[in-house]
């Protein structure tokens, strides 16, 4: 597939659901940068606020990891964690995606491409398109990433 993007190693491949299904057998790193639900201000204390996040099975969730403006420290944390997950293999297929209410997956893909990853795929359909035909699983924020976020 990378052979189809000869003009630059900085490219990413845009995939649809069929593309993602085809890619899954190659064990891509699935990077979910969907935002965590934000608790409404003044949400009553006595009401249950219990957000959950369902994603593509096997995905690693970096809530907020696709923000357009990430400070240098967080950006470094994101890239460090991805590097760990692919064990330094920058040619490993990576898929960035999120929920419809964020466009962080594009930003995340961009960061990875700039960093020299050559197997970056962007799945704009995100979880919504995935769940139309496949089940999802609840995920928690990646621990290492979560630890880098301000509390």
């Amino acid at each position: 597939m990378r052979g189809e993007t000869p003009t630059t190693l900085k490219g990413a491949v845009v995939i649809d659901l069929a593309g993602l299904e085809a890619l899954i057998s190659k064990q891509p790193l699935l990077v979910d940068v969907g935002l965590a639900d934000k608790k409404p201000e003044n949400f009553p204390q006595d009401r249950l606020w219990l957000p959950t996040h369902r994603s593509i099975p096997g995905a690693v969730w970096f809530p907020g990891g696709g923000a357009a403006a990430l400070d240098a420290e967080k950006e470094a944390a994101f890239l460090r964690r991805v590097d760990e997950l692919v064990q330094g293999d920058r040619s490993r297929p990576i898929v960035t995606f999120c929920r419809p209410n964020c466009w962080g997956s594009w930003n995340a893909g961009k960061r990875l491409v700039m960093k020299g990853y050559t197997g970056v795929h962007w799945f704009p359909g995100g979880i919504d398109k995935w769940q139309e035909f496949h089940d999802t699983v609840a995920v928690e924020p990646d621990k290492a990433w979560d630890a880098s976020m301000p509390k």
């Binding site: 189809e4 003009t7 649809d16 659901l17 069929a18 961009k110 398109k129 139309e132």
Partner: peptide
């Protein structure tokens, strides 16, 4: 944002996948 070169490859596959886009959601 400029300088990030997204490649629109595999349009044949796009067409196949787009059939499965959910209409009600959009």
């Amino acid at each position: 944002m400029s300088g990030f070169d997204l490649q629109w490859v595999g349009n044949g596959r796009h067409a196949a996948g787009d059939v499965r886009f959910t209409r009600r959601e959009t």
